[in-house]
């Protein structure tokens, strides 16, 4: 065990400085990873035998879909931590993650329909994964809308936390219900589970892009958390003494 006192950084004041120091590095790593991922995906990965060049959108689509789900869980985790331990910073993290999660969900939906047009011949198919992604977007919007409807930020934190927890419990149920509904209603138009094995370079490209998505999400969440800290703690002495807020 290291002797670092992690709880020190649970205070917005110390975290503000720490996050400020991390953000440029995170951005740099995210950009480097994204460039590498795009290079692997578009220059190195072979053309798909069945889908031609259209499949290359998966290098954006799949990482975006992963991120949309991971961020919801992270958001629910921080919201729950804020509710249980009453730590201000946790709730701020949850608030900061929500727009990025919603963004990735929209990105996954848009790239999914762009891929669907040449592959399935339709912009939108009521496929189980597309539908559950759409419902995930509704959950994000609900979280953001509930926060926006309550003026008192502390009350908004806690109400949104209850919603995020209920949503997180519901996400697997929704996912499986949609999957069963899907298998009931339409014959498998395309079956990913029995699709031929993916080439290693394709998998590598996707993993690198997913990593870029992770680092990018952390970076923008930290930027947003810093803004939220400034906004909420604007009456605190340490904020007024910051260089960047001097007139």
């Amino acid at each position: 065990m290291s002797a670092v006192n992690w709880f020190k950084y649970a205070a917005p004041q110390t975290f503000y400085v720490l996050a400020g120091r991390w953000i440029p590095w995170l951005y740099a790593v995210a950009i480097l990873l994204a460039i590498t991922g795009v290079y692997i995906g578009f220059a190195m990965a072979p053309t798909d035998f069945q889908q031609g060049e259209a499949y290359r959108i998966i290098f954006v689509h799949v990482p975006a879909a992963w991120m949309s789900m991971v961020i919801y869980l992270a958001m629910a985790f921080w919201a729950a931590a804020g509710l249980v331990f009453n730590t201000r910073l946790s709730s701020m993290m949850a608030q900061a993650l929500a727009p990025t999660g919603a963004l990735f969900t929209v990105l996954a939906l848009v790239t999914g329909s762009l891929w669907g047009k040449p592959t399935w011949g339709a912009w939108w198919v009521w496929d189980a994964r597309l539908t559950s992604e759409l419902i995930l977007l509704f959950l994000y919007i609900g979280f953001i809308a509930l926060r926006a409807s309550i003026d008192n930020p502390l009350r908004a934190d806690r109400a949104a936390a209850v919603l995020a927890i209920v949503g997180a419990v519901n996400v697997p149920i929704i996912y499986f219900s949609v999957r069963w509904w899907n298998t009931l209603h339409q014959g498998a138009s395309i079956n990913m589970s029995s699709a031929p094995k993916m080439a290693t370079t394709m998998l590598a490209g996707m993993l690198v892009m997913a990593l870029a998505g992770w680092i990018y999400s952390i970076a923008v969440a930290l930027v947003r958390v810093r803004c939220i800290i400034l906004e909420r703690e604007r009456h605190a002495m340490w904020v007024r003494q910051l260089e960047e807020v001097q007139p």
Partner: peptide, 21 residues
């Protein structure tokens, strides 16, 4: 809250989906 009438459906309807299905 200030949500008005539209907020409640936005929160609740997605959670109703499994029961509906």
């Amino acid at each position: 809250g200030r949500g008005g009438g539209a907020l409640l459906p936005v929160l609740v309807l997605p959670l109703y989906i499994p029961v509906l299905i």
